[in-house]
Simulated assay, not measured.
Amino acid sequence: MSVEEIFAFHEQEAGPVRFVESFGGWVVTRYSEVDRVLTEHAVFSSDELRYSDRPIPHGSNPLLRGLQAMDPPRHHVLRRIVSQVFTPRAVSSLEPSITEKVHTLLASAGETFDLIGEVAYPLSVHTIASLLGVQPSRWPDFVRWTEAITSFFGTFTADEARRIAFDQAVEEMGDYFREEFERPAGVIATLMASELTEDELIDFCALLLINGHETTKTLLVNAVLCLVARPKPADLRLAVEEVLRYLPPTGGTDRFVTRPTTLGGQELRPGQRVVAMITAANRDPEVFPDPQTFDPDRTPNPHLSFGHGIHFCLGAHLARLEARITLAALLARPWRIADLDTHRTPVGIDVLKATLVTR
C-alpha cells in the first residue's frame, strides 16, 4: 500500500477504521485511534501467535516471540532486564564510537557514494554489532538475515524462494548466537547474567539485530531526503523528530484484538488483526498543524514513530543519537543528492537508496 493510499483511507468518508481484505484486518489511520491501539495492550495485543484467528506461515519468526510481541506480566519482567542496555547513560557512552565511525566512513567515501551501502548500513550494523560484541566478519550475515526475515510476511509467504531464505536465516541466526553464548561479550554477557532462557536470549538478540540496524538505516536515508536541499536546521534534535513524523522508518504496526471492542464506530471481534498506520496518524491535521509540510522547527511534535505505551521502542534514544551525529557530519560537507534509486517498500515509501556527490 502506497503512502497516498494510506492517506486516502484517512480522508474517505468511510471513517478512520476500515476493514481491508488485502491486509486481512482493520486499518486504523486517525491519531486518536492509532494511539489507543498502541497503548491499550489488554485489548490490542502484540502477541500474534496467541491471538490471531488466521494461519501464521511466518510463525517461526523470532520477532513474533520476542519482547515486542509479548504481553504483561512476562513483558515487564524482560523489559526491566533488557532496558539496562538502553539507559541514557549507556547510550551516551556510545557517542564517541559512533562519531568516530561516521567520520571514518565519510573520509573513505569517494566523490560519489551510496548513502546506504557506504554510510547508513555500515554505521547501523557497526553500532549493533558493537553492542552485541560480535566481529565485523559476520556483519554481512546480519544484513542477509535481516532481509530474509523481514521480507517474509503477508502475501509474500506464498513465495517458496522467500520461505527457503527465511528458514535458512532463522536457523543460521540461532546457531550463530548459540556460539556467541559460549564466549559472551557486550550486551550478550550482560543479559546472560540475568535469568533469561536461551530462547529468550536469542529472541532478544534477533530483535536488537533486525530492528536496531534496519530502522536506523532507513531513518538516516529519510533524514537526508528531507534535509539535503534545505538550509542547515537550527536545531538538529527538532529536525530529527520532524523526519520521524514526516517520513517515519516504519509505516505501521500490527495488533490483535483480545476481546470484543468498538474502535472508530466499528465493532471488532477477538482474533482480528488491527494495522495501526503510524504514517497516517503522524499527519493527522487534528494533531499536527499543516501536516503535509515538513517543518524542521516543529514543536511540539508528538509523533508515534517509536510507538507508545509499554512497547515504546527501546532503541529510540540510540536511533536519534546516530541520526543526529551522522546528519551533523553530512551537513557540514557540501553534499547533494545526485541520484535517487527508488523502489516500493512494504509500507509504500520510496526512499531506500540515494547517491550523494560533492557539489
Rank of each mutant, 00 (worst) to 15 (best):
A223F: 00
A223H: 00
V224R: 00
V224S: 00
C226F: 02
L227E: 02
L227Y: 07
L227Q: 03
L227W: 07
L227M: 13
L227T: 02
V228S: 09
V228C: 09
A229R: 15
A229I: 07
A229N: 15
A229D: 15
R230L: 11
R230W: 01
R230N: 10
R230Y: 04
R230D: 08
P231Y: 07
P231C: 08
K232C: 13
K232G: 10
K232V: 15
K232T: 14
P233R: 06
A234Y: 10
A234R: 14
D235W: 06
L236Y: 09
L236I: 10
L236G: 08
R237P: 00
L238V: 12
L238I: 13
L238H: 14
L238M: 14
L238F: 14
A239P: 01
A239G: 04
V240F: 04
V240R: 01
V240Y: 03
V240D: 01
E241P: 00
E241V: 01
E241G: 03
V243C: 15
V243M: 09
L244C: 11
L244N: 02
L244R: 05
Y246G: 02
L247S: 10
L247G: 01
L247W: 04
L247D: 12
L247R: 11
P248E: 02
P249T: 12
P249D: 14
P249M: 13
T250N: 10
T250W: 00
G251H: 05
G252Q: 01
T253V: 15
T253H: 04
D254V: 09
D254F: 13
D254P: 06
D254R: 15
R255E: 05
R255F: 05
R255W: 03
F256T: 02
F256R: 03
F256Y: 14
V257N: 00
V257M: 04
V257Y: 01
T258K: 07
R259I: 05
R259G: 10
P260K: 07
P260L: 03
T261I: 05
T261L: 07
T262I: 13
T262D: 14
T262P: 03
L263N: 06
G264K: 09
G264D: 07
G264M: 12
G264P: 07
G264L: 10
G264C: 09
G265F: 14
G265M: 14
G265D: 12
G265C: 11
Q266W: 05
Q266L: 09
Q266P: 02
E267H: 14
E267L: 12
E267I: 10
